[in-house]
Simulated assay, not measured.
Amino acid sequence: MTSFIPAITIPASVFANPAASILLPIALGTAVGYSCRPKETQKTYLALKQPPFRPPPEVFGPAWTLLYGLMGYSAYRAYSTGMNPFASAENHVLTKHGATLYSIQLGLNLIWMPLFFVAKRPIEATVDIVALTGVTGYLTYLWAQVDTVAGLALAPYLGWLGFATYLTVGVGHLNDWNLADKEIAVPPSTTGTKYVNEKDE
């Protein structure tokens, strides 16, 4: 069981407001994405040797926007249900512990892209995403006890994190855990994208 740590937990007023709860992760995720320079990130992504089933780069923006929105909705549902005056004392505890876990996982989520694409540190990025997946899995378990919908809203995010972990480990392994100088000069068109490890027909 984790603990409620106010100093590192998003304020209750954010969780209690549906718009703020949903928009916060979307806004932070978008800010981090743009701060990592999307065009440069795409160049790096296309230059890497990739494992099977990797999606084209244009999928990530819409996918993460949806997942961040579901994440924020889950937080709102769990908090509004668990902190209801009529909820049990156990639910109050689970909700507050979950709020700290939620804040931790959001931080872990936001540092992955700078670690992987800016610092080009695949080992550290892998450690980060494994920790993120574990924390989110436990958070899903806790908040599902408070509110079933809150748990279900986190399920797609948790599934995507599993897939993202596979991609992170796969890219790291295929590129010998070294992403330095992995960049192509001009990204190809998004239609019929070819990666560095693929040959033209």
Rank of each mutant, 00 (worst) to 15 (best):
P18L: 12
P18V: 10
A20I: 03
I22G: 08
L23F: 13
P25I: 02
P25S: 00
I26P: 14
A27T: 15
G29M: 13
G29L: 14
T30D: 11
A31Y: 14
A31G: 04
G33A: 02
Y34K: 01
S35Y: 03
C36R: 00
R37Y: 01
R37N: 15
R37P: 03
P38G: 00
E40C: 11
E40I: 04
E40G: 15
E40N: 13
Q42I: 09
Y45T: 05
L46C: 04
A47F: 13
A47D: 05
L48W: 10
K49D: 02
Q50A: 10
P51G: 14
P51H: 10
P52Q: 00
F53Y: 10
P56D: 15
P57E: 09
V59R: 07
F60K: 09
F60M: 06
G61W: 00
P62Y: 00
A63T: 11
W64E: 02
W64H: 10
T65P: 07
T65V: 06
G69V: 07
L70Q: 06
G72W: 03
G72N: 08
G72D: 05
G72K: 08
Y73L: 11
Y73A: 06
Y73S: 04
S74M: 03
S74I: 04
A75T: 03
A75K: 02
Y76F: 08
R77N: 03
R77A: 05
R77V: 02
A78Q: 06
A78N: 12
A78H: 09
Y79P: 12
Y79H: 11
Y79W: 10
S80W: 02
S80G: 01
S80C: 01
T81K: 13
G82S: 08
G82N: 05
G82T: 03
M83E: 06
M83R: 15
